[in-house]
């Protein structure tokens, strides 16, 4: 149930703070997203630059980089995911506790980017795990990463706690584990997780 904005402001003037459980819950979640201390390639350097004094990620409550996936809420796929690394990335994602989010940072994480034609490069991490925010760029500037944070916060804010559109961690049916690909003789097996990714249709 939403509270009338006008009424809220009016009550606020009177010194009464009115909110909904949903808003409070989402506010808490979005204000302390702890990213995982996890860098893959060049984009990771820009990710580190974002946490440093000049761009100061701490303003968004996300400066606490956790080395362990168990303590992290968000994974920034910062760089090229190779086929050798992809099983580890999926495994780390499986080890994170819900609610968990993924930001695909840079062209490589989205689609393979400049290295798309390489034999050992995974053409986009969304073949194996669901991604919440994509930021293009090679590398994306720190400002772009901040923008991704804001986008993710908006996304969390808009999530209802009940109903069809509720987030995955409130849905008992939703999958919690994603299958980890196995390195095969010529390629990863399977080459994609078809429950989260389908072959894009090219419209010409």
């Amino acid at each position: 149930m939403a509270v009338d904005e006008q009424l809220k402001i009016e009550m606020g003037r009177q010194g009464v703070f009115v909110t909904t459980l949903e808003e409070l819950y989402n506010w808490g979640r979005r204000s302390s997203i702890w990213p995982m201390n996890f860098g893959l390639a060049c984009c990771a350097i820009e990710m580190i630059a974002t946490t440093m004094a000049r761009y100061d990620l701490a303003r968004f409550g996300a400066e606490v980089f956790r080395p362990s996936p168990r303590q992290a809420d968000m994974m920034i796929i910062s760089g090229t995911v190779t086929k050798k690394m992809a099983p580890q990335v999926v495994r780390l994602y499986n080890q994170m506790a819900e609610p968990r989010y993924v930001i695909a940072m840079g062209a490589c994480a989205i689609s393979g980017g400049p290295f798309k034609q390489g034999y050992n490069v995974l053409k986009g991490i969304d073949r194996y795990i669901p991604v919440d925010v994509h930021i293009p760029g090679c590398p994306p500037r720190p400002e772009a990463l901040l923008e991704a944070f804001i986008a993710l916060q908006k996304k969390i804010d808009a999530q209802p706690l009940t109903g069809e559109a509720r987030p995955r961690h409130l849905d008992a049916e939703a999958p919690g584990e994603f299958p980890v690909p196995e390195p095969g003789e010529h390629d990863l097996e399977p080459a994609a997780n078809t429950s989260v990714w389908t072959v894009p249709v090219v419209i010409r």
Binding site: A41, T82, K84, P114, F115, Q117, G118, Y119
Partner: peptide, 23 residues
């Protein structure tokens, strides 16, 4: 090694000299 093996050398063989500069 190999967790970031991005096939730089193979890509370099498939494109012109100048195209390898940004790589």
């Amino acid at each position: 090694f190999g967790y970031l093996h991005r096939n730089h050398e193979k890509l370099g063989e498939g494109q012109s000299y100048l195209a390898s500069m940004p790589y």
